[in-house]
Computed example of a mutant assay.
Amino acid sequence: MDPSSLTALINWLIDGARSSDQPSQTMSEACGRLVALGVPLWRAGVFVRTLHPEIFGRSFVWRQGGEVEIGSVDYGFQDSPTYWDSPLAVVVRQGVAFRANPQSPEAERYPILMDLRADGVTDYLALPLIFLDGEVHASSWTTRSPGGFTEAQAEAIRAVIPALSRYTEIIGLRRIASMLLDTYVGNSAGARILGGQIRRGHTDTMHAAIWLSDLRGFTPLSDRLPAETVVDILNLYFDCQVEAIRGQGGEVLKFMGDGLLAVFPIAAQDGDPAEVCSRVLAAARAARSRVHALEYVSGDARERFRFGVALHVGEVLYGNIGGGNRLDFTCIGPAVNLAARLEKIAARLARTVVASETFAGACAEPWTDLGAFPIAGLATQQRVFGLREED
């Protein structure tokens, strides 16, 4: 085994694996280099917990002659027998290495080793990836070579682990930052913030279709139900909308109590307002169906829900607003204010979906003219339109 080639591999990882654009490519190249050094790898995996509201952890699994497979598990995984009966649980809990021959009788207590035995694996080496804060993640390395890894081959794998841990930690932190921003401020806002748009006053003008919705009867509902129940209901209610909005290319910007603000950007150069507004209306209909079907059992009561959504098209100011070092990335402007006023009119008219004249004019649907209404702050009355199917 060439010590200089092993050192080159370690230095390459320390330097950020610059020849690889993605973690999966890094995994593939690192394993390929180990094989070239004489380490007879058959399969290798890196398993990292992450900070995500739905995903407990991610895996990167390399196989000789195949592509790196990227997988994820939800939060139920850490309580499952699959996890607790695996060597990786030992590595993560105790922060120690684990090595076993899947062909030996002692391996029979671990189901994963039985699977590897069927694949002809002769050696299994699991090593901790220890981050700077002491958090422990895991890696696994297997071979089908007769007799398993030699001590020199196993030592080569161990030598790579510190550099692999640093690389994994840095990439993981960057991904966590991106996911948290996506989770709390939205996809495009998160990208802008990571891109450096973090100072107060950093704003852009966006032409967009605007969605502003509200849950009917939320105040009395929150007065008569326990706070925990109200939170459950709000989460279920927002689920009815968020999936529909994102599925049609929209971005949820803000939850305001029971209110939701979302935008559907219209490209400045070649954007098609009619196409975008058609997608917005499809999302509104999908959300309407889901909220109508939503049912929540609380004691002897069976709660049903109604909501309203106002749709408008206009220019919004999109960026950082706040005080000192506490900022909010949001949309403001007359178009957002008009959408908020329209949503109140929807409640007065007992309508689910209402649209401004601008939105209705851009969306070829059978609209009903609901009349002209005075809008606070505007000199002229605004015409409001409803879907004919709701007449």
Rank of each mutant, 00 (worst) to 15 (best):
D2P: 15
P3V: 03
L6M: 14
L6Q: 12
I10G: 08
I14P: 00
S20L: 07
P23K: 08
T26S: 15
S28M: 09
C31N: 12
V35R: 12
L37A: 05
V46N: 01
R49C: 13
H52N: 13
S59M: 02
F60N: 02
F60C: 00
G65V: 04
G66P: 01
E67F: 13
D74Q: 01
F77K: 04
D85T: 03
L88Q: 12
A89Q: 05
V90E: 14
G95V: 01
V96G: 03
R99M: 05
A100R: 10
A107I: 05
R117G: 01
L127E: 04
P128T: 11
S140G: 03
T143Y: 07
T143M: 12
S145M: 12
G148E: 03
T150G: 08
E151N: 09
A154Y: 03
I161H: 10
S165F: 02
S165C: 05
I170R: 15
L173P: 02
I176T: 15
A177D: 03
S178P: 00
T183G: 00
R192D: 11
I193V: 14
L194F: 00
G196S: 04
I198K: 09
R200Q: 14
T205K: 10
M206R: 12
F218P: 06
P220T: 04
P220D: 13
A227D: 01
E228L: 15
N235Q: 08
F238A: 08
C240E: 07
R246I: 10
G247T: 09
F255M: 11
A262V: 08
A267Y: 09
A267I: 08
A267V: 10
L281C: 03
R290C: 00
A293S: 11
V297S: 14
V297F: 05
G299M: 05
D300C: 09
F305C: 14
F307S: 15
V309H: 02
A310L: 10
E315Y: 06
D328A: 11
D328C: 06
F329W: 04
T330H: 01
V336T: 06
N337R: 11
N337C: 03
L338E: 05
E343V: 01
K344W: 02
A347V: 15
R348S: 14
V354D: 06
T358N: 07
C363R: 00
A364G: 03
L370C: 04
L370H: 02
A372R: 12
G377H: 13
T380N: 14
V384C: 05
L387I: 04
E390I: 07
D391A: 09
